[in-house]
């Protein structure tokens, strides 16, 4: 029953990403959207934490949010569009949004 975790708050001003990372199951996925994509800013502890996740945990970022913020997806993350977001919801057993 793997979970896709959806985050949308900046990890520099908010504890949601840190809390989420502690609760991940081995086959869960993490999807960064909105200001949560700032977690992919190079040279940060936040990106390092994401890169330390086990390889079985997939990492996604919403492409439009990356583009808007002049960020690009590092090798560890996959930039996705909305149709892929929708399909991912079916790939995982449930979606946990950190509202």
């Amino acid at each position: 029953m793997a979970t896709l975790h959806l985050l949308s708050h900046s990890p520099f001003s908010d504890s949601r990403l840190a809390s989420c990372l502690r609760l991940l199951g081995p086959d869960d996925g993490v999807l960064l959207s909105g200001d949560a994509v700032y977690a992919l800013q190079p040279g940060t502890a936040q990106l390092q934490a994401l890169e330390l996740m086990p390889a079985s945990i997939a990492l996604y970022a919403l492409d439009e949010d990356l583009q808007a913020r002049a960020l690009s997806a590092p090798a560890r993350a996959q930039a996705i569009d909305y149709p892929t977001f929708v399909e991912l919801c079916g790939h995982y057993a449930k979606v946990n949004s950190w509202l």
Binding site: L6, S8, H9, G34, G90, V95, S97, L99
Partner: peptide
């Protein structure tokens, strides 16, 4: 539904 998807925050 097969999936409940919630949106909120930034």
């Amino acid at each position: 539904a097969d999936r409940l998807v919630c949106f909120g925050g930034q």
